[in-house]
Amino acid sequence: MGCFHSTAAREFSGHENPVKLASETAFSVSEVEALFELFKRISSSVVDDGLINKEEFQLALFQNRKKENLFANRIFDLFDVKRKGVIDFGDFVRSLNVFHPNASLEDKTDFSFRLYDMDCTGFIERQEVKQMLIALLCESEMKLADDTIEMILDQTFNDADVDRDGKIDKTEWSDFVIKNPSLLKIMTLPYLRDITTTFPSFVFNSEVDEIAT
């Protein structure tokens, strides 16, 4: 475990301690410190308040502050664990942790289930899937006839909704992604393996003695 000098408090003042965050995630302390460089950049891009608001989140992801989107809103809501309308550093690291290549399949499955359970009912319902499908078609300017969309939904629910109750529960989703592992492709960010090379400036701010880790 790295020893974290008190002088580092200045750098992380008001944010969770990187040694503690590293102990809770797949990241090393250095990787958490590198993520802090990314966090500082995003959280100061519109309002320099040490928190990421939705505009900053969308600006960082899509280089566009105003790009309102169903999916982006949903992901922001899942990162905003404390439901404050902003993302603090701890939640940012813990949420990104799910996308780490070494994160568990169970965590990835759980996050993707909550991602698609748009109304937070505890089920992925047909109407929600249709809404997401139409959002995707709008985004890619693809046109599909209504009956084609219904056919895709029929096939999807035929495969996933095993008890035929018209909605996909957590167990059905877990079984479905095991049969269709490509559905979790979005849940892994290879970049997270090299975060310290992407944001090397953390070295200048690092106060943690990695030797002791």
Binding site: L61, L70, L96, T156, A160, L189
Partner: peptide
């Protein structure tokens, strides 16, 4: 002759193609 019924892609495979679900934008400086 086997039936050539077309394989219907499932909705989540399509949805997963959304660029709004790709967080790698964070790391592209």
């Amino acid at each position: 002759k086997g039936s050539d019924s077309p394989t219907i892609i499932n909705a989540f495979q399509l949805i997963g193609m959304s660029s709004f679900l790709d967080l790698s934008g964070f790391f592209e400086l």
